[in-house]
Nucleic acid binder design. Structure first.
Lengths: 256, 256
DNA sequence: AACCACAGGATTGGATATCAATCAATGACA
DNA sequence: TGTCATTGATTGATATCCAATCCTGTGGTT
């Protein structure tokens, strides 16, 4: 029985990042209070947290909605992400010890094995984690939190775009960034990070509703039951073929 | 009659940034609800916003307190600030147009005039603003918000340290950064930004309670009355002589 | 005297009921 | 058909109440 509003904010965040709650979706206080079986006040506090995180937008006397970032927002978010990761790269190239480089190489290797063995889901998760591990090695919790927030917002963006690849799946880029940085070749590494993100934004075509709209009741059902841990559901795509999460790098290399 | 909790969060933020509410100060719900004449729930929501912003810390069943960042936190915040401003500098050196450079030069000039005419208070404000203007020229609202939050946290830090200079008052550094960047000399500019911030952190000596502790009731009194605008009160310093806000740059140049 | 245990007070976290203000949709009317 | 007013729904906010938890102070024990 701890912070209910934080727990609910976390669940809503997960649902948004899983593309189960799509941008523009109304987050009614009464409905959510029934879904989570708490009072409206707790919901309000959770929604304030989401809004502070950029994942929801609260309009006075109209209510809260899942944020619907504009194309401009998308570019700004990726610009900021690039700036942060480039800065972290510069710091790491100075300060990172052998153990850190080993962890990065090991992470890339684990993802390579996952790809080789056809475990696309695991590869996807590892690909996302790479960026987090990268920033974590800076040993700066403030930067970690800023970066994590930017990553959440990029994940939200992917609810709005058709390109069915994830920026975090570019295994080759990851490997090369680590290689370049370890050799002290900072500038090419930073340029690669920039290209890495730019290639994603270039692929953006914002057409509304890539994912099907679920009511909050339907969308949140998998999260609340027991407590946590078992059914992390991905969302089914609406159009444009495959699963979307898996098989990513191929497209990107073509896009370059 | 708009968002009361946001308005209250803003007032609390101002009070903290003015060093009227010092780190560790208890922010009791009942007391604040009486001060602002609102219900406890509105106060809770405001405190959640402050906590999300890193200015307050909420401990379960104990209440909210003005955040008391550690030395480690201080270094991380300045590291992050350096990273952000260096990144923005790199972007500006590529993309900023003549009008932008003119605005920066003009801002430095205005501050120079303020210093020359002995208007230390204005010079201080302009010195703080420089960094904000700098980041605003990146035309990236996401970066602006991240930067603003980091600046707020550095301002909070200054409640805890004895060095009575403000990092934002280094007029010479500002002028030189603009000059170097405009000439395309990115690397020296970035190193200067780094030195700029490092010189501040080096001067940090964290001894508790640089500013006198006021009760929230006393601290907030100047903010709530009419509406806004007239009495932005600085806080009186506890020890170490002068006002603290004024006459800054002299010390810093000595410190280098 | 020092130390531990327990009880009481105070504060937070949360629920519920209620009211006012505002937005949106509906329907009446020209 | 177009415009305006009414109505319904939702949010913003309040007051009151209750449970859980923490802090403190008291008192007993060693």
């Amino acid at each position: 029985m701890s912070n209910r509003s934080q727990a609910i904010a976390d669940m809503l965040t997960r649902a948004i990042l899983d593309h189960r709650l799509v941008p523009g979706c109304k987050l009614g206080e009464r409905e959510l209070s029934e879904v989570f079986d708490v009072s409206r006040i707790v919901i309000r506090q959770a929604l304030i947290r989401l809004a502070d995180d950029g994942l929801a937008q609260i309009e006075r006397n109209r209510g809260a909605f899942v944020a619907r970032p504009s194309m401009q927002d998308a570019m700004e978010i990726y610009d900021a992400l690039t700036l942060v990761e480039q800065g972290v790269a510069a710091q790491l190239s100075d300060r990172l010890g052998p153990a850190g480089w080993a962890e990065l190489r090991q992470h890339v290797e684990r993802q390579r094995q996952a790809v080789a063995s056809g475990n696309d889901a695991l590869a996807d998760v590892l690909g996302q984690e790479f960026h987090t591990v990268f920033v974590r090695l800076s040993r700066n919790k403030v930067m970690q939190e800023i970066h994590a927030q930017l990553v959440r917002r990029t994940t939200l963006l992917r609810s709005l775009i058709t390109a069915d690849f994830d920026y975090c799946n570019l295994l080759d880029d990851h490997a090369r960034v680590v290689e370049l940085l370890e050799k002290g070749r900072l500038k090419p590494a930073m340029e690669l990070i920039d290209a890495h993100h730019r290639s994603v934004v270039r692929g953006y075509i914002m057409d509304r509703q890539v994912f099907p709209e679920l009511t909050p009741r339907e969308a949140l059902e998998p999260y609340l039951d027991g407590k946590s841990g078992e059914p992390p559901k991905p969302a089914p795509r609406k159009k444009a073929g495959e699963n979307g999460a898996a098989r990513a790098h191929a497209h990107v290399h073509a896009a370059k």
